[in-house]
């Protein structure tokens, strides 16, 4: 945004560059603190709809302060200029803080439940896959098994791909939540 040499007395217009408005091309995890008031989620979601931004995943939960909730949402930075998304969000009066978590400086997790119908030999095979993904078997019946897996969105998507050939009945995902690494709060 600011050209080099801003301390010198003269400036050449050729040295000015605009760097905002560009697309990052990657997934962004936005961690948003909002006031815990009726309709706040609608305001956030409505803003995305109205501005034509897509939400890929969305997770809402309480924080350790009753008056504040956290919304974690993921947005594709290849489709939308993220600075425009965050600036529009900041204009919502109930939005207190927004953090665009850098993948390297944060941990993201999602929880998913998978129901598969398997019997006999196949059952052993899916159990093995589950082991590799550090999943848990949380329910078993004669014809079906339910697995629980946590991890990044990518890991869960990979697990999903692996299970698909085995009579996957359904899958539920929570959407990602994320936390900053290091000692400071997100």
């Amino acid at each position: 945004m600011i050209a080099d040499g801003s301390t010198s007395e003269t400036l050449s217009l050729d040295d000015l560059h605009a760097s905002v408005g560009v697309r990052s091309g990657r997934k962004h995890v936005l961690s948003i603190l909002v006031e815990n008031k009726p309709g706040v989620l609608t305001r956030v979601a409505g803003l995305f709809t109205r501005r034509g931004f897509n939400i890929d995943t969305l997770a809402v939960g309480p924080t350790d302060d009753d008056a504040i909730s956290r919304i974690t949402l993921t947005v594709d930075g290849a489709l939308h200029p993220i600075d425009q998304v965050t600036k529009q969000l900041h204009k919502l009066v109930n939005v207190l803080k927004i953090r665009d978590l850098e993948p390297g400086d944060s941990l993201a997790r999602e929880l998913a439940l998978f129901k598969v119908t398997v019997d006999g030999a196949q059952r052993a095979e899916v159990m093995q896959i589950c082991d590799v993904f550090r999943g848990k078997v949380v329910d078993v019946s004669k014809e079906s098994v339910i697995f629980e897996v946590t991890g990044t969105t990518e890991k869960i998507t990979a697990f999903d791909e692996m299970l698909k050939p085995f009579g996957l009945v359904e899958m539920m995902r929570t959407g990602e939540i994320a936390i900053a690494r290091g000692r400071d709060a997100t």
Partner: peptide
Amino acid sequence: AKFIHIDVDPAEISKNVPAHIP
């Protein structure tokens, strides 16, 4: 043109036309 953009609303800056000096 290069653009200086002065506005009280940060979301207007670089919304339609990228600003060189916001």
